[in-house]
Design a protein around this nucleic acid. Sequence first.
DNA 1: ACAAGCGATGCAATCGATTGCCCCGACGTT
DNA 2: AACGTCGGGGCAATCGATTGCATCGCTTGT
Lengths: 336, 336
Amino acid sequence: MAVTLSDVAQAAGVHPGTASRALNPATRSRVSPATARRVLAAASRLGYLPNSLARGLRTRRSYTVGIMIPDLTNPLFPPIVRGVDEVLGPAGYSGLVANTDNDQTREELLFAALRSRQADGFIVATAHREHALLDRMAEAEVPMVLVNRTTENRAIPAVVPDEAAGIRTVVRRLAALGHRRIAHLAGPQILSTGHGRYRAYLDAMAGQRLEPGPVAFADGFTEAAGRAAGGELLAARPRPTAVVAGNDLLAIGLLDLLQEAGLDCPGDVSVVGFNDHPMLARMATPLTTVRIPQREIGAEAARLLLDLLTEPGPAKMLLLPTQLIERASTAPPPAR
Amino acid sequence: MAVTLSDVAQAAGVHPGTASRALNPATRSRVSPATARRVLAAASRLGYLPNSLARGLRTRRSYTVGIMIPDLTNPLFPPIVRGVDEVLGPAGYSGLVANTDNDQTREELLFAALRSRQADGFIVATAHREHALLDRMAEAEVPMVLVNRTTENRAIPAVVPDEAAGIRTVVRRLAALGHRRIAHLAGPQILSTGHGRYRAYLDAMAGQRLEPGPVAFADGFTEAAGRAAGGELLAARPRPTAVVAGNDLLAIGLLDLLQEAGLDCPGDVSVVGFNDHPMLARMATPLTTVRIPQREIGAEAARLLLDLLTEPGPAKMLLLPTQLIERASTAPPPAR
DNA sequence: ACAAGCGATGCAATCGATTGCCCCGACGTT
DNA sequence: AACGTCGGGGCAATCGATTGCATCGCTTGT
């Protein structure tokens, strides 16, 4: 049915081994230019496509990498995946996307499936700060790079946004607008993102010589969790005049709460998100947020992984710059 | 390094062939229960993971399917991909996602890469009404299923939303609200979605005994295209009191235009989208739209493909029901 | 003119799992 | 007691590409 290397070799009148060398640019110098030309011509005439399975079996390289994410329908991830793909593709690799749904059992299963498929390495967006599976993988020297989130285990390379800088910019800006009571609606502390932004908030407040305002901890990066935890912030007296949220969805949950309480954003309370979710610009109150370079995060992670696959090196950690996007949800505090 | 079948066989004291049969549920009956137990035990003790490349090479099945989409960062596609994955995963298949960026050359390249990886079949979301590549693939009897869009070539199975029914519901609803001059902001006519919705609009207007209002054709399913083509509709006299857009992004482009022209939606003009883009509910003017069952489209397509892989059959076409989601962008026409 | 050297190519093993074929031994039948 | 049957399992070929090693013939140096 399909055209094989032997077919090409036969058509060119050479041995399959010779055809193989002629077809591979790296070994092409080992055959005479005339032969190479004949083989190449035969290959394109027959429409030869190498069988990656056979090649992978022999070379112990599948040219496949596993991409572990919580959920593809979360708009945070598609741009990251595309960034990965943009770098991997031209290098001859394909990415296999696996959705864990934040389920540990599922993650183990998917990981096993990808190992079975001989994935050469992994891009992982599902890290928790403590992550037994990832520790084991690191121990086994499985090539991988974390994206967006890290673990406490610094032996694993990672590419993440510079959250500290992002939050610092936000707090500085709010302070410049005149805010003094700046609260934090924190994300889950088991994630580096939730924890890192919380720490960054504390540092940034200290940097502005401001008393850290009330802090509430949401148990997920969702609107519902934002609503659930946000009430605590609005109930504080004196009420904070600004809230730095752990991400956009938490901020949106808080916005709902504000509306229900008859409070105006930004008139009564300024709100800032994180990530720059695509819907933000078109919302009723366009949300001020911190944009992270999703595509670049994916692309850089892929580059790091390719390096790792070529020659194992020490674990690097890359911090990518963020950008404050000011929209309509921030303004000076109300006059008292 | 890795545990192979031979290792397992040796540990269980049997021949690799026997171990293979014991491990495969379909052939397990060919070995004695006692042997099967020993092999299974050895396999799990050693943490054996079959090498899919080796298996695929021998069985001529990679258990991989290619998923061709225009762009993963378009929110229309992630839910479809997940739907595909939900069905494919449990069946032992993995999906390889390829982004064509609507580039024909790129599509050919990606398709070749996937063939080289021995993909067993394809889920294709990039169809044009006339599509030479897909015709060739159909000719070559490559197993595939189209999603969301179809070609004119009915020899290719497809799973698409029931656009005719969706548009009919919209037009009927607008008519019930009292609209008579209902315009259509049509999408690209080279796509089945653009063309199908346009035809459906004409039919639905006829069904309501209404004169088809002005129609403008956008050259892409984007905000910019909506802005570019929408002006024509608003310039028509008498001005239409409602516009059925080919999709949500076209509708949003039109909304921008309305605002710039000092017209109110829904006060002066009602607007309806299509697809139920996730940002819609939270927009300044929440958009009325037709929701399509994205996940189900993906899931059904995957089921169809699995059937096709088991035994090639005739090309089926599946129409999935849509749902009208009424929000704030539709209201009775202004009194004149 | 001959040996050493080298470039070009052929040969065959190999990667790991699957599977058609054959063999062996136990059991049942007459 | 002899023979047929059948379940269980070993053997080896096979999938298609890669690659270390062998080989062959020609060039080059002396």
